[in-house]
Design a protein around this nucleic acid. Structure first.
Lengths: 336, 336
DNA sequence: TTGAAAGCGCTACCAG
DNA sequence: CTGGTAGCGCTTTCAA
């Protein structure tokens, strides 16, 4: 079932069939109807590969994320997809699992499909890639990493201010032993969060003691990090997490250890995924407008005109719910 | 940057370049090296559309799910993708949001991309589609719906037995007022679950009173359904949910209403997603081996040989955790 | 308003 | 071992 067969059946040329199928004006009504019927009868489905190849342009965008298991990434994808679809584009999604080799492969793959634009929502990033991406001559948009360039748009979140706000808040609640739960801390943007934490917390030194625990960006990773913290000797009264997903794991582990949140330990997240509200108690966290970010990314790739470099900075918003409270005074011996 | 340019630079024919790039034997080592270098220098990326078109075969599979927000679907996708990738295939994912019109569009779209196989993990399904899919002449695999046919493999879960087991268990715990939380109950497989619930529960009539509440397959949907139940006058002592995702919403709503789980009301889920363990208290649920299902689906689409109809039935396994307990004796007035 | 024909970039077959 | 070339199915001039 190719265009040609449809043409044959409708007794017209392939050119005419193409016109009809692409809603191009200048086809007699009767002819159009004939073509449409033929296509219908033959169960004809245009070969999108051929279309893309012949047309010379693609209507597919590519998005690469670090961990689609984490709802944060999925939320961005969904928003971007909705926006893109509204503009007549599809999005294909790829996952790296924070593996920069996979990232390179995924990019290669997307280039192979000749995507019309590329959105990267990843933490892992190699400098060399940025240059290659620039030469690509298609619009590219980064979230969280990289630098704005010729054809590349950049969206970042002001982690420093967000984290500082939380640390200050906790300090005000009397917390003097704080911990940060992170993942892949060698990576750029997470390094940023970790650094922000360090800097803010150091301002209260030596009144405040602190510590960082890293694991994987999973529920289980959160549990592991919490366990590490509980055994660390710091005896923290507050645990900040670099994202909500890991925070859920942290809460689970604390519960398992008989520790009350927030009575014994306060916990905070980052992102404000919908599960944050479902948590018990509901998680205090910093909101990141994922929907808006997704839209912005799709826009950056489909607006066409602005191949100019652009840069956006987003301010997170602290949402206080049920996992933060005054620090306990007494020491707390866990894992006796 | 096309094959031809690479050929030119390496001073060979396009045929030879193609051979090298596809690892086809019979190319002198020196030539091969020359080609590889040329490709490298030109930052050449083969156009996969052209490749697919010329090759006549696709190495892309399509998967369509009902709700990728629900981790259940994502788990299946991830497993399928891993398996497929191991066999040299990609998977493109599409989401219907339980909208059968979207389903039709998505299928159309996948056919347009000439996917090598199609996996449907959806509840919504029109009879007419099955026939079209059969004529497609590519392997198709259904989860949960449809019937095994010529080229279509079928994987189902024995909902009836799973649900019966839970109802019996709860009855044994003294529960006499039970409710089912469902979504899109008009849809096939959910209709099945609902029917299984009805039938099992009726066996205990009139000792057992029951009720069904339907909403959307979201956390919020779970909350709404729970609210409906609390206001229904049934005063249930146990709430079964058709999946874990909604169960989390149900638990949240109960908590909000000051109801203790499981002291006041027992709750059960279905699927055993990883969040079930994270819930507080941990959710009692029926395990569905999503990883295995994903693998089976990928296998069914890539094994090639067996274009024969196949059929699988999976038995869910009841996992008792912290949300189920003995029924309270006293009536409980909610929303006084 | 319609048709003929030249590609799009690649694979695969046939010669040499 | 390598080159020439006929398509794959579609879009897009250029003519008619």
């Amino acid at each position: 079932m190719s265009l040609e067969e449809v043409a044959k059946r409708a007794k017209v040329s392939t050119a005419t069939v193409s016109r009809v199928l692409n809603d191009i004006a200048g086809v007699r009504h009767a002819t159009r109807a004939r073509v449409l019927r033929a296509a219908e009868e033959l169960h004809y489905h245009p070969n999108l590969h051929a279309r893309t190849l012949a047309g010379g342009r693609s209507t597919t965008l590519g998005m690469i994320v670090s961990n689609m298991e984490n709802p944060f990434f999925l939320d961005i994808f969904k928003a971007a997809e909705t926006q893109a679809r509204g503009r007549g584009y599809d999005i294909i999604l790829a996952n790296t699992g924070y593996d920069s080799e996979k990232l390179v492969n995924n990019i290669r793959h997307m280039i192979g499909w000749r995507v019309a634009g590329l959105a990267l929502v990843v933490s892992e990033m190699e400098q060399s890639l940025t240059n290659q991406l620039m030469d690509l001559n298609i619009p590219v948009v980064f979230y969280d990493v990289g630098e704005a360039r010729k054809n590349i748009t950049n969206i970042k979140v002001n982690y420093a201010s967000g984290i500082a706000e939380v640390v200050n808040y906790l300090y005000g609640l009397g917390h003097h032993r704080m911990a940060l739960v992170s993942h892949h801390s060698s990576l750029g943007p997470l390094g940023t969060r970790e650094q922000a934490f360090r800097e803010t917390v150091e301002k209260f030194a030596p009144a405040v003691q602190w510590r960082v625990a890293s694991s994987t960006d999973t529920l289980e990773g959160g549990r592991r990090a919490a366990r590490e913290l509980l055994n660390s000797g710091l005896d923290p009264t507050a645990i900040m997490c670099v994202n909500d997903f890991m925070a859920l794991g942290v809460m689970r582990e604390l519960r398992e250890s008989g520790i009350q949140v927030p009575a014994d330990i306060s916990v905070t997240g980052f992102d404000n995924i919908s599960l944050a509200e479902i948590a018990n108690p509901a998680l205090s966290t910093l909101n990141i407008p994922r929907e808006k970010i997704g839209q912005m990314m799709a826009d950056a790739l489909t607006s066409g005109e602005q191949m100019e470099s652009q840069k956006f900075l987003i301010e997170p918003e602290f949402i206080i719910r049920g996992t933060t409270g005054r620090a306990r005074i007494t020491a707390f011996r866990t894992r006796a």
